[in-house]
Amino acid sequence: MSSKAKGASPGGGDRINSELFTLTYGALVRHLLLDLESPEEVNKQLDKMGQNIGIRLVDDFLAKTNTGRCRNFREAAKTIAETGFRMFLGCSAKVTQIDDKECKMVLSENPLTDFVELPEKLQPLSYCSLLCGVIRGALEQISMKVECEISKDPLKGDERFELHMRLVEYVNEEYPFKDD
């Protein structure tokens, strides 16, 4: 039953070649561009998909890492930068600027954009907006409402990839949870 053993191995430690991931993401963006036609719509769709991912990804993250509860925005931002990016994207991020409500982080490299060049007519396309959605979705699950945007993007001519997060509010959990 070798296949069973393999299938059951925890995914946390498993790594795969980033090229499959990169090319698949690229193919997705291309198909979204064909389907939705306007780059702005694609940005929205990517962001939405990212949020869906984030909502589920946070469980995976908490289950596989032994991170304690992030009590505030600062801790959450640091955890994302130091552990989150390494676990999922295999790259590290550095928090360059942080206070209680805002945070900027720079990614050392960005596997999403390997092999990518944006043609001029697609300048409005925010290629990595999926990442913003992921962060927003994940933090939403731990009761923090944040806004996230790409403040510097090498695809648009900047020298590095930088994300800008802004805390909107801490959301209180509501009891009792409804069943439906």
Partner: peptide, 26 residues
């Protein structure tokens, strides 16, 4: 070696699941 970096299998699994879900709507 840079382009041969590894990503977590979860990253791909989540992405693929979103692709399937999106495709289902079309």
């Amino acid at each position: 070696s840079k382009t041969r970096n590894d990503v977590g299998v979860g990253a791909f699994a989540f992405l693929f699941s979103e692709i399937v879900q999106y495709s289902q709507t079309r």
